[in-house]
């Protein structure tokens, strides 16, 4: 099912690092290409705090939650 979602971000933290590209490559499916700088890749920790998540078409109830993404 495809859902278009409207989310009010309370805030979003993006914490960025760089590591040797070869070290990160094994976390990826082969059809994705790492963007690198000087042999280093740039992973991010993404932490959105979401208030009032709503699904646009079917009236999904509003919910609040925090997420962590690597």
């Amino acid at each position: 099912m495809k859902l278009d979602v409207l989310a009010d971000l309370d805030h979003l933290f993006i914490i960025n690092f760089s590591v040797e590209a070869t070290r990160l490559q094994r976390l990826l499916p082969g059809h994705l290409r790492l963007l690198t700088r000087e042999g280093r890749a740039i992973p991010s920790i993404v932490l959105p705090a979401i208030r009032n998540l709503r699904q646009r078409s079917v009236g999904f109830p509003k919910v609040d939650y925090d997420l962590f993404g690597l």
Binding site: D4, V5, L6, A7, D8, L9, D10, H11, L12, F13, I14, I15, N16, F17, S18, V19, E20, R23, L24, R40, I42, R56
Partner: peptide
């Protein structure tokens, strides 16, 4: 891994579709 901290960011309240 040898991890280097890079510039990090935040954004405040805004709607996202």
């Amino acid at each position: 891994a040898e991890v280097q901290l890079e510039p990090s960011y935040y954004v405040g309240q805004l709607p996202r579709y």
